[in-house]
């Protein structure tokens, strides 16, 4: 039974990695947000499974937190922002999709190498997934780098948080509850503040292209 639950955890970890790649290749912002919600769902399932396996009560709580925040509230907020800002497409990624994918592969190899020493030190049953968590973080970072629009950069940022959460989970069975609550609150507040920022940026430049920030002159 335990062997099967461990295999399922591995499968969920692999799914998380796959979703990261899907987000990397996605051009439509609405789909990007849906993928983010799906990633949150997978994360929630993995947390629940781990909680059931290790009998750690606080993991149930963080699974509930993940479900509420990352599957329901944040995607809702993002969808509302998208509708109100009327941005549905991230038109031009910096690099073509196939190129981005190949860079992503190299990053995954790098992340696996990077996680090797941590994996060797960790004593949890899920330690082999640490590499995947690092890869998810770095891939989300790549998503942020290759996008121009503020909206998809925020999605990348949230995906990065997912990766961090998963890393903490697989390395030490989750962070202390207080830290987790703090991070969750931080993300929520960051989201709200960024929402305000979006409107400000659009008012200033008429679009959400972060390219505008590169020139800091007063004359527009």
């Amino acid at each position: 039974m335990h062997a099967l639950s461990l295999q399922m955890l591995d499968a969920l970890a692999a799914l998380l990695l796959l979703l990261s790649f899907a987000m990397l290749s996605q051009r439509r912002i609405v789909t990007l947000v849906n993928l983010l919600a799906l990633q949150g769902g997978v994360l929630c399932a993995a947390t629940l499974l781990l909680a059931w396996r290790t009998h750690e009560g606080h993991l149930y709580l963080s699974a509930a937190l993940t479900l509420a925040l990352k599957v329901i509230v944040l995607p809702r907020l993002l969808h509302r922002l998208i509708h109100r800002l009327d941005v549905y497409w991230d038109t031009e990624p910096m690099l073509n999709i196939a190129g981005t994918m190949l860079v992503g592969l190299v990053i995954v190899v790098f992340a696996f190498g990077l996680a090797q020493p941590i994996t060797a030190l960790a004593s949890t049953a899920t330690r082999s997934a640490i590499g995947i968590a690092v890869a998810v973080v770095l891939l989300a970072f790549l998503t942020m780098i290759t996008r121009r629009k503020a909206m998809s950069q925020v999605v990348g940022f949230l995906s990065m948080e997912n990766g961090l959460f998963f890393g903490a989970m697989s390395a030490t069975y989750g962070m202390p509850m207080i830290v987790e609550l703090g991070v969750a609150l931080d993300v929520l507040v960051a989201m709200l503040v960024l929402g305000v920022f979006f409107f400000q940026i659009r008012e200033q430049f008429d679009n959400l292209d972060l390219h505008n920030f590169e020139s800091l002159r007063e004359d527009k």
């Binding site: 461990l6 591995d10 970890a13 692999a14 990695l17 796959l18 790649f21 592969l105 995954v108 190899v109 696996f112 082999s128 997934a129 590499g131 995947i132």
Partner: peptide, 11 residues
Amino acid sequence: LGLLVHLLLRA
């Protein structure tokens, strides 16, 4: 990805 996942998660 399948190859990498296999190498990493072999356990």
